[in-house]
Design a protein around this nucleic acid. Structure first.
Length: 424
RNA sequence: GUGGGCGUAGCUCAGCAGGUAGAGCCCCGGAUUGUGGAUCCGGUCGUCGUGGGUUCGAGUCCCAUCGUCCACCCCA
């Protein structure tokens, strides 16, 4: 029986490696520029951490977690998201004690859902978390940072949607109003929608059911239920985004799936990834730190889906150019084969940053040269008995119609330095 | 969890009144005993997803099952 990968858990193959790195380094460059520091976290936590933070009634907790009992009998869970872990780590080590933290982290997350386009059981997120800041300036900052990442990557399709959920208190009032409104509509709702109405009526607003569209359009809007502070916070945020030139649309029906969100919520969406439009989303979670046992601490963060961004890069034709070797060392003869590795080492040491591929496959001279060509290398370095005899190296340009030249090792180093400095 | 599409070589795919498996790409060797890219010649690679059924005979028809993709649900 052939060993298969686990459903929904994908291998990122070498052809995609550069694209992934490009996305990761674009994000890291932005984090550095804004003074956010990296935190690295375990992929597993006590199950309770997630059930308490994300919310017992959410789909994530109810049916999507990879939860099992470890050998000591403890219930552990592969993290379905990172924010709870960041907060837990901060509390474990006193990082939030009388101080703020600007943090980022990345890594795999796990949700047992049915895989489909841009949705997998193991997926990767980059998270940004700013903890201990109450004002709308930090809301604007984290959103601007995400916009800068799209800029660096050359992505054009992401659109920003914004909303405010207010405080838990005003949300409760809104919730009642929604329940009253939808209950009055009565039999238009199917059993599933009724269940949602009972448990989390805000989610009904997200429904794609065309029969509900009209009903949803007429539903009360959360903004009418915002308290003055939340309304002012949101107003100020929109002004800051205007000042920064970050475009957004206010989507009064944007609610998020995790229970801990308060006030600002936002989502970067694209129409180029099928049914999965959200590539980065987040919001304020002012109650979470206290809820997990810390002091009352405001916080905001976002999570970016790496697979989604990578796929979007491909959709938008932003594939990374390959980084072929500068030079490919071709060997003729047994003695040259014996010495080749050492010469390659010398060249790499003398020409820092050179990308030099050694042909380790052997075979005929002809096929080695063919591999040199197909590797995309600019130069073939040729080492055979002739070259060994007088400590020289032949260099054959593969991308230009120039003659092959026999160089001393010193001259070859100079030539490689020149090529290194004149190519990407 | 529900629905639909698709499973033939490493990759892209052809094969179908049911007659015992092919092409291109890739890889290797050669034409050119140390010279790539174009051309030509040759070669390696398949339990036709798996199991059962119908049939003299199944890649082809039927059933089941697994996988995969897309969508619903939900979300990054």
């Amino acid at each position: 029986m052939k060993i298969r990968p686990i459903r929904g858990m994908n291998d990122v193959l070498p052809d995609d490696g550069a694209l992934w790195s490009a996305v990761e380094s674009a994000a890291q460059a932005v984090f550095d520029a804004y003074g956010y520091r990296q935190i690295r976290l375990p992929v597993m936590e006590h199950t309770e951490l997630f059930s308490r933070s994300i919310g017992e009634t959410t789909d994530i907790v109810q049916k999507e977690m990879y939860t099992f009992t470890d050998r000591s009998g403890a219930s552990v869970t592969l993290r379905p998201e990172a924010t709870a872990s960041v907060v837990r780590a901060g509390l474990s080590h006193g990082l939030f004690h009388n101080r703020q933290q600007k943090l980022w982290c990345s890594g795999p997350m796990f949700r047992h859902e049915r895989p489909q386009k841009a949705r997998y059981r193991q997926f990767h997120q980059i998270n940004l978390e700013a903890i201990g800041f109450a004002g709308p300036e930090v809301d604007a900052e984290v959103i601007i940072m995400s916009a800068r990442i799209w800029e660096r990557l050359g992505l054009e399709s992401p659109r920003l949607e914004l909303n405010s959920l207010g405080t838990p208190e005003c949300r409760a009032g809104y919730r009642e109003a929604l329940q009253a409104y939808f209950s009055a509509a009565g039999d238009v709702l199917d059993a599933e929608s009724r269940e949602r109405l009972r448990r989390n009526p805000l989610r009904l607003l997200d429904s794609k059911d065309p029969r509900l569209r009209e009903l949803i359009a007429g539903a009360p809007v959360l903004r009418g239920y915002l308290d003055d502070d939340s309304a002012a916070h949101f107003q100020r945020l929109t002004e800051l985004l205007d000042d920064a030139g970050v475009a957004y649309t206010i989507n009064p029906r944007l609610v998020r799936g995790l229970d801990y969100y308060t006030r600002t919520v936002f989502e970067w969406v694209t129409d180029r990834l099928g049914a999965q439009g959200a590539i980065c989303s987040g919001g304020r979670y002012d109650g979470l730190v206290a809820q997990l046992g810390g002091r009352d601490t405001p916080a905001i963060g976002w999570a970016m889906g790496l697979e989604r961004v990578v796929e979007l890069m491909e959709e938008e034709g932003r594939r990374q150019p390959a980084r072929p070797p500068h030079a490919y060392l071709v060997i003729a003869g047994d003695e040259a084969r014996r010495r080749g590795l050492g010469i390659a080492e010398t060249l790499r040491a003398r020409v820092p940053g050179i990308r030099l591929t050694m042909d380790c496959a052997g075979g005929s001279f002809r096929s080695q040269l063919r591999r040199a060509d197909r590797s995309g290398a600019l130069l073939a370095l040729i080492l055979g008995d002739n070259e060994l005899a007088d400590n020289s190296l032949s260099i054959k340009p593969l991308r230009e119609d120039l003659p092959q030249t026999l160089y001393s090792l010193e001259e070859a180093v100079a030539e490689l330095l020149r090529v290194r400095d004149n190519s990407p």
